[in-house]
């Protein structure tokens, strides 16, 4: 039992990162009905932007915000230039376009001279420090991830509950035609969703840095947040957070208690099990037809 609490906290920290990425997936999917397969690469881009800012002397907090802002702008641009022209097409070409965007990001970052092909450590404010929670030593970096995620989650909740753009975005997700009838421009909402989603992915990328370092293959971890979004019922915001946390905990415990190799596929096994049992996810609305 000694290992239980540290594993749980490490799992929650990882789960928070998954949750942030899954939130972005869910946001973009809700607003645009597009599943963004480039989301993992957006997270990776955020990690690299954060790294660049920290190495050029920015304090970590500012670098975190800067990376989120830069990626939000990138998301806005990507939606406008790459995805908007495809509006109205069937889903396979659109999904393939997001995959193509992901390939471009990953290839482009790998080509960065002297940085893209390497693995980088990012200095964080509490690197190497250990806090004590309920008598158990815990890496301060993990607590930082959890705190930032809680803060961002709270801000998002307030944004969707009280701010006009947040409410219009929810309206678009619930009923695109109805939203349009009351004067909400769908294109703007798609841009907003992409900007928010990409910003969240960038936060996740910077927060993940102390756990896995920054490298061009980071996107694969972001792809694992896709199961988190599905487990939570694609498109429900609270579900995405719950799915992310569940996934982080399962991976953390599987790495310790289960045989080798199970940890790497735990996310995929979990999502298949959930899809078998409840095809619309744990928190999604079950549809009548199959």
């Amino acid at each position: 039992m000694d290992a239980f609490l540290p594993l749980a906290i490490a799992g929650i920290a990882l789960g928070c990162v998954y949750a942030l990425v899954a939130l972005g997936f869910a946001l973009i999917y809700q607003a645009t009905t597009v599943v963004n397969f480039a989301h993992g690469e957006l997270m990776m881009l955020g990690g690299f932007v954060g790294l660049a800012l920290v190495s050029s002397g920015w304090p970590w907090w500012l670098a975190l915000a800067g990376a989120a802002l830069a990626c939000a702008l990138f998301g806005l641009l990507a939606e406008r230039v790459i995805l908007r022209p495809l509006t109205g097409q069937v889903h396979i070409p659109i999904v393939m376009t997001t995959l193509g965007l992901g390939f471009m990001l990953k290839g482009g970052i790998t080509m960065l001279p002297g940085a893209g092909a390497e693995t980088h450590a990012m200095p964080t404010p509490f690197a190497g420090q250990v806090a004590t929670v309920a008598g158990v030593p815990v890496a301060a970096d993990h607590l930082l991830v959890i705190a930032v995620t809680a803060l961002v989650g709270g801000l998002l909740f307030a944004f969707f509950s009280f701010a006009t753009p947040g409410k219009t975005l929810r309206a678009t997700a619930q009923n695109p035609l109805g939203a349009r009838l009351v004067g909400i421009a769908p294109g703007r909402m798609h841009g907003l969703a992409w900007a928010l989603g990409a910003g969240l992915a960038a936060l996740a990328g910077v927060l993940l840095a102390p756990i896995t370092f920054v490298h061009a293959q980071m996107g694969l971890i972001g792809i694992k947040a896709l199961p988190a979004a599905v487990i939570g019922g694609f498109g429900s915001i609270g579900g995405a957070v719950a799915g992310g946390l569940l996934l982080g905990l399962v991976e953390s415990f599987a790495g310790f208690y289960a045989p080798d190799g199970i940890k790497d596929v735990a996310a995929w096994l979990l999502v298949l099990a959930v899809l078998l049992w409840r095809p619309a996810g744990l928190f999604g609305q079950q549809q009548e037809n199959t």
Partner: peptide, 25 residues
């Protein structure tokens, strides 16, 4: 020579995919 060629193939694949879907759906 200054640019590492490692990501070139992946980048080109992505670019071709995006462009072809955009202009020849």
């Amino acid at each position: 020579a200054a640019l590492p060629p490692a990501g070139l193939e992946l980048f080109a694949f992505g670019l071709v995919l995006v462009l072809s879907l955009r202009f020849a759906p």
